Simulated assay, not measured.
Amino acid sequence: MALRDRIGASWPCPLANSPLSPDETRRYARHLVLKGMGGGGQQALKRARVLVVGAGGLGSPVIAYLAGAGVGTLGIIDHDTVSLSNLQRQVIHTSIGDNKADSAARFAHALNPHVDVVVHTVRLDADNASAILSGYDLVLDGTDNLTTRRIVASTAESLGLPLVSGAVSMFDGQVTVFAPGGPRFDDLYPAEADDGDLPSCEATGILGPLTGVVGTLMAMEAIKLITGIGEPLIGRVLTYDGQGGRFSEFGY
Score class of each variant (00 low, 15 high):
G38T: 07
L45R: 01
A69V: 00
L51R: 06
G41D: 06
L15T: 10
I63W: 08
A16M: 12
G54Y: 02
E24N: 01
P14I: 00
M37I: 14
V62I: 15
P19A: 13
A44K: 03
A29L: 14
G57V: 01
D23L: 14
S60T: 04
C13V: 13
S18H: 13
A16I: 11
H31E: 00
Y28P: 06
A55W: 04
G36C: 03
A55L: 09
P14H: 02
G36L: 07
Y28C: 08
P61L: 08
V33R: 15
A48L: 09
R30G: 09
R49K: 15
L58G: 08
L45C: 00
V53S: 04
G68Y: 07
G38W: 08
Y65C: 03
L45W: 04
I63G: 09
R26C: 12
G39S: 12
A55C: 14
A67P: 06
L15Q: 14
V33Y: 12
L32F: 08
K35E: 13
G59L: 05
A67T: 03
P19R: 01
L20Q: 04
E24W: 12
N17A: 15
P14W: 11
V52I: 08
R47I: 07
G56T: 01
G57T: 04
A67Q: 10
T25K: 15
L15Y: 09
A16F: 15
G54W: 10
V62N: 02
V50W: 07
S18P: 07
P22N: 11
V50Q: 05
L32W: 12
L34D: 01
V53L: 03
P14N: 01
M37T: 02
L20K: 04
L51D: 06
C13T: 14
G41Q: 07
A67R: 09
G39Q: 13
